[in-house]
Amino acid sequence: MNRLKLSLSQKIGFSLLLVLVLYSAGATFLQAGDSASQNLSHILSAPDGQFWLGTDHYGRNMWLRLAEALQLSLMMAVLCVLTASITGVTLGVLAATRGHTLDRLLDFVVTLILALPGLVLVLIFAAIAPGSFLVLYIAIALIQWIEYFRVTRAIVQRLAVSPAVQSSKLMGFDNWYLFKRHYWPVIAPQLFPLAAFGAANAVLMMASLGFVSVGIQPPTAELGQMIVELFPYYSEAPWLLAQPLIVLAMFVLACHLCGKGAEQ
């Protein structure tokens, strides 16, 4: 297992990710201030020594607002990936090994959730509790666990009837051993690309909702919502619109590069 051997695209992906994480975590140490205070005498300014990324239409500090929005996105990504992967893998192994009833039940639940495109489901959840980070997180995780579940279940189902597992059973090994030596080593490398694409999707989903103004509500900074807010000022201050666009695209690209490198 050459886990630490990274492909070129993974190296680029991880570097981009590292830059984004460092920026979101360290922005306030580099430039003091707060992201919410308005300064109407200093709106739509270009980047300068005082405001490194300029100010928006309320005169708010873009360097800090962008960092805050990115923090929110990263948090959403991490939470969704963790919840969805743990749930999905656990249920996937159980469905494939614990008999027909549980498998059928979970299959029914999956069919139910997959009957609606993910974004539509998230939109309805967003309508129930407008602007709630928690509800958004629940909705996205609810959709994303399925991918991990299906991959895990397919792998374990295939392996459970393989000669290797049959042989281990014949030798008297228990279920935990089967998981440790047979299932997990095959599942684990598949999880990484799923997690990378899942993180990108979670962030995109939140930004999409922000973009159509039904996601996280102002004044909290959120990437999609910033894009739609700054679009009207596109001709006066194109650099402002570019900032959330670039951060969003950078994050998604970084995830895709990490994930795709691992797939090959």
């Binding site: 999409s208 999609g224 596109y234 666009l245 695209a249 950078m250 998604v252 690209l253 895709h256 590069l257």
Partner: peptide, 22 residues
Amino acid sequence: STAMRALPVFVIGLLMIILFAL
């Protein structure tokens, strides 16, 4: 295609508007 996939669909739309319409 990798670059395009990194752009959410609404960003592609925005860029189209900016280029073709504005």
